[in-house]
Simulated scan of single mutants.
Amino acid sequence: MLQFVKKEKVLPFKKEEYQDRVKNVKMSMEEQGIDVLLITDPANMNYISGYDALSYYVPQGVIVALDLEEPVCIVRLQDLFCATETTWMITENVIAYPDKYLWEPKALHVMDFIGDFLKGKNLHLKRIGLEFDTYFFNAHWYKSLEKCLPDSTFIDATSLVNWIRGQKSEKELEYMNIAARIVEKTMTNAINKIAIGERESNVAAGIYNDLIIGTGEYGGEYPSLAPIMPAGDRTAGAHFSWTTEGTYQDGQLMYMELSGSYKRYHAPLTRTIFIGEPPNLVKETAKIVIEGLNVALDKIKPGVTCEEVEKAWQTTINKYGLQKESRMGYTVGLSYPPVWTENTAYFKPGEKTILKPNMTFHMMPGLWLDGYGVAITETLRVTETGCETITKFPRELFIR
C-alpha cells in the first residue's frame, strides 16, 4: 500500500478573514430579509469557504444560514477531497453527493440533494436567497428546487456576495499585485516576440507559458479569460483571440488583453502594438485613449461616483469627435471562468456607486472604430486620497 506524507493544509487567508466575510454576508442577508443563502457562483463559493477546484461544470454550492455558525459546502463526491483540502470549515460541514444525482438530472437532480439537506436542517421554510443571474445557476436548477421545496420562499440574491467582495483586504491586494507582476512579464515577452512572419498561435503559446510560469518567485494559475489578441482589421472587434493559421504582417495593428492570476486573483492589462510605421490615424487614436485614461484615473478618489469617472473619460474623447457607447471599466479581483469581472460596479453612465478605498477596477478605455481598434488599460486600486494602478507598464503605443 502506498503511503504519502500528508502536507499541512495552508489556506490563502486566515480563518479569521473567512469568518469576517461570513459575518458581513449574514449582515447583508438580514438587511435583505434572507434567512438562507445558496451560493453557486464559484468565485463567491471560494470567497466564503475557500473551495478551489475545477469542478464548477457540475452543480455545487455553499450554504450560509443565519441559524448555522459555519457555511456548508456541498460538492460532488468525486470532489470531496478537493473540498476538504481547500475549505476552512469543520469536516462535517463539507458534504458530498453521489454521482447518481448527475445521471438523469430530469428525474433526480443535485438540487434535490440540496433541498433534502435544507429540510433536514429545518431551513426549508425560511426565506432562501438564490443567485438567479449567474453563469452557474440555470432555470432547470431553479425548477428542481421549486419542486423539491414547494413551501419555500425564494428571493433573488444575485450579487449579494459580489458586492461584499468590493473592498479588498491587504492579503487580497497582495495577491492582485503578484498577478500584476505576472502579466507585466507576460506582456513584455509577448510584445518582444511579435515580428513579421511570426505565427499568432506561437505568441499565444508564449503567453500561456509565461502566465503559468509566473514571476520565478511566484507561479501563476490559469486566467478566467483566454488572451484577447486580435490583429489587423480584427482589432475592430472587442473580443477576438488569435487565429490558428495567421501570421503577423508589416503594417499591421494588434492589441493584447491579458491577465495574470494568483490564488484566483486577477490584474488585467491591455496594450496596443503596431508592426512597422503606424499611420497618423492610429497614433492619434492612441494619444486620445491615453489622454482619456489619464483624465479618468485623475478623477478617481473616495466619494466620487462611478458615473463621474466615466463622464471624465467621455468628455475627453468627445473633444475629438469620438464617443464610446460601452462601459469603460468594471470591478475586478477574484474570479473563475468565463470572466474576470466581479459583476458589480461599472464605470458607465448612471452608475451611482460611490468609490471607497481598496475597491479595485479594470479601467478599459478601448475604442473600436471603423476597421480598427485601440485599447490601453490598467488595473487600479482606489486609495484614501485618489487611486494607484496595480499594473505598472509603459502607457504607450508600442511599435515593432
Rank of each mutant, 00 (worst) to 15 (best):
N162S: 13
N162M: 06
W163V: 15
R165L: 11
Q167D: 13
Q167Y: 11
S169T: 15
E170Y: 06
K171Y: 01
E172I: 03
L173G: 00
L173I: 00
L173R: 03
E174D: 06
E174H: 10
Y175V: 02
I178Y: 00
I178S: 04
A179Q: 08
A180E: 00
A180N: 01
I182F: 02
V183P: 02
E184G: 09
E184F: 01
K185D: 06
N189R: 15
N189H: 09
A190S: 14
A190Y: 07
I191P: 08
I191C: 08
N192M: 10
N192P: 03
K193M: 14
A195M: 07
A195R: 14
A195C: 12
E198T: 15
E198R: 15
E200K: 12
E200G: 10
N202S: 15
V203H: 13
V203R: 15
A204F: 14
G206L: 15
I207F: 12
I207H: 09
N209W: 07
D210R: 05
D210P: 02
L211Q: 04
L211I: 07
L211F: 02
L211T: 03
G214Q: 02
G214V: 02
G216M: 04
G216Q: 02
G216S: 03
E217I: 01
G219D: 09
G219I: 04
G220D: 05
P223S: 10
S224L: 06
A231Y: 03
A231G: 11
G232A: 07
D233H: 04
D233P: 00
R234E: 07
R234A: 08
G237M: 07
A238H: 09
A238E: 08
H239K: 10
H239W: 10
H239Y: 13
S241I: 13
W242L: 11
T243R: 12
T244R: 09
E245G: 09
E245L: 10
G246C: 09
G246S: 12
T247V: 15
T247N: 09
T247E: 12
